[in-house]
Simulated scan of single mutants.
Amino acid sequence: MQRSLYANSRVLRGCQIVLSRSLRLTWQEFDPPSRTSSPLSPFVISHGMLGNKRNWTTVGRILAEKTSRKVYAVDLRNHGQSPHSDEMTFFSMAEDVVEFCRHHDIASSILIGHSMGGRVAMTVALTRPEIVDRLVIVDASPSPKLGTRWNWVMNVLRAMNQLDLSKVKNQMDADAKLRPLIEDKGLRQFVLTNLRKNARHQYEWAANVPVMLASEKQLFTFPTFTTQFTKDTLFVGALKPNTLEPELDYIMDLFPTAKVRYLNTGHFVHHEDPKGFVELIDAFVDPNRTQDVPHLY
């Protein structure tokens, strides 16, 4: 598994061609029960901001078993075990995913992306539609406006940046030091999945927090596109709160065939209701499907 190699590639932004240097992403994979080579397009999953490939372990295993498709979950750049870079845009992250597919001989895949990873997946579909079989976007939209979660995400990143990791003794100590800055226990626990020890046995963030803070404008507004993705697309939104409803016009402008379904969860849809989430995905990708994707709520 290579973590720090680069590959030159060309990214299409509307009518402009930009030379980009892609990174080799780390990943985990889940095989279908038969373990034989499947002719079906595999899933390639991109996590949200401050997440990593491990967030998709449960759903990845179930999807592989239920759909008989191979599942890859990647660490996006500046996350998890993947390389860090000073460049962090949806185009650069999308090109990393394209390079991942090329490196693994994936001619066509079903892209799943949650939150920031959803915007990465949308960028791949809009710039390289020939390598995308179908598209699944989880609680994210292509809105050019600052998202509703912008304030609290920026506050979390600032809190992480303020924490003096040289004085952290262990996970519990880090939790105590973050408590005044991040009051929500569940959110703190999620943030602390990024805490790790480096080769010098010192604590550090797996996520490249300074670059994320510096890339605020690039990460919280979606780029303008003149193209559309017209293949099968499913948007899975949360109801607590429902942030997709106000963005439906933006969705249909770029993804005119999109179906929108909701689950009665918060933002981490696949974590809070893995059974309902997999049911929607299984119905969406079933090659023998005769009925529409169900409305569970």
Rank of each mutant, 00 (worst) to 15 (best):
L248A: 07
G48K: 07
A206H: 09
V269Q: 02
S37T: 12
K185Q: 09
L135S: 05
F225E: 02
I62Y: 08
G118Q: 01
E216S: 11
A159M: 01
K169L: 13
V98C: 13
Y297Q: 12
P256T: 00
P42F: 00
A159D: 01
D175T: 09
Q2M: 12
P129L: 05
H79Q: 07
L254M: 06
F235I: 02
D282W: 12
N242G: 06
D292G: 08
M172A: 15
A107I: 09
K145P: 03
S38V: 09
P129K: 03
W56T: 04
T26D: 14
T193F: 06
F225N: 05
N52S: 14
G60T: 00
M212R: 01
V44L: 09
P256E: 02
L19I: 11
Q2L: 14
A214E: 11
S9Q: 12
S143K: 09
L76G: 09
T127K: 08
P129Y: 03
S108V: 05
R54V: 09
I137G: 04
N194W: 03
S68A: 14
V97H: 06
T226F: 13
G80V: 01
E279F: 12
L63F: 10
A238H: 04
I45R: 11
L76P: 02
D75A: 03
G48V: 06
Y250T: 06
F255V: 00
A121F: 06
N155Q: 15
L178V: 07
E183S: 14
G118A: 04
L126R: 02
L25H: 08
T230A: 12
T127V: 03
E183V: 10
N161Y: 08
I131V: 10
L213R: 03
R13V: 04
P274H: 01
R289Q: 09
N161P: 05
G237Y: 07
Q171W: 12
P287F: 00
D105T: 10
L244D: 03
M160W: 05
T221W: 13
L50R: 10
P142L: 06
S34K: 08
H79W: 07
G276R: 01
F91Q: 13
G14L: 02
G237K: 10
E272T: 05
S108M: 11
L135I: 07
R149S: 10
L165P: 05
D75R: 04
A125V: 02
A7Q: 13
S4N: 12
F235E: 08
R77T: 09
I281S: 10
N52V: 04
R134D: 02
M154T: 08
P246N: 00
L263D: 02
Q2H: 12
F235A: 06
G186N: 11
F100R: 00
N170P: 08
L280E: 05
R3G: 10
Q162P: 03
L19K: 15
N242M: 06
R179L: 12
D173A: 08
L192G: 06
T123K: 02
V156Q: 10
H267Q: 04
H271V: 14
K145W: 09
T57A: 15
L219W: 02
H103K: 13
